[in-house]
Nucleic acid binder design. Sequence first.
DNA 1: ATAATTTGGTTTATAAAATAAACTTGTTTA
DNA 2: TAAACAAGTTTATTTTATAAACCAAATTAT
Lengths: 103, 103
Amino acid sequence: MFKPLDPLLHSELRLAVMSLLISVDEAEFPYIKQQTGATAGNLSVQLDKLATAGYIEVEKTFKGKKPCTLCRITPTGLKAFEDYVAALRSYLNISPEGDAKND
Amino acid sequence: MFKPLDPLLHSELRLAVMSLLISVDEAEFPYIKQQTGATAGNLSVQLDKLATAGYIEVEKTFKGKKPCTLCRITPTGLKAFEDYVAALRSYLNISPEGDAKND
DNA sequence: ATAATTTGGTTTATAAAATAAACTTGTTTA
DNA sequence: TAAACAAGTTTATTTTATAAACCAAATTAT
């Protein structure tokens, strides 16, 4: 009846990060921080978890002399996100065609 | 950009309970337990939280000689659920007509 | 030149949450 | 009447989320 929700994605900040990366394909740490409103520490931890799961890639480069952490979503991450959204639907009854009964 | 997600609803079990109560309007503890697959202890705790927030009503009655815990959603709870779904959309790229990314 | 500040983070400590195990109370069954 | 069961609740444990404290390099101010 209720599909299990991937705990890695069922987190406000990690979900926001994934959502962001889906739309931009590549983003720098400070940009993600600004868009999500997260603290640097929290963001660092959550990016690590997503990277460890293989949902995102984190590339440490330099922008001139300054360090620059680039993030992008992986195919695995995209798939996981799509699965998460599909699972969520079983909780939300948001199908517009009125098939709320097949939950 | 990303709307905050009501932490009370952003929980797999509590969300399942709310989803269930929306569709049935009234349900007994054992039924909810069976439908959600939760343990009794976990369910008891989560129902308490929803009740404390005013999202559900819990009525303790008897069914013959056995205790019977009845739950139903409140208008406040329904509103909260709808707000939660609306907020989630900001993360999921889901339009009211479906998933925009599938277009 | 060097002290203070800023940038771009990471590590660690704490608060909050989810969850199951253990327990309670009353009921039915052997 | 003792054992098992039903319907929950309480308590303890594990996980998680989050921010505070920290670090290193670069920039700016004195």
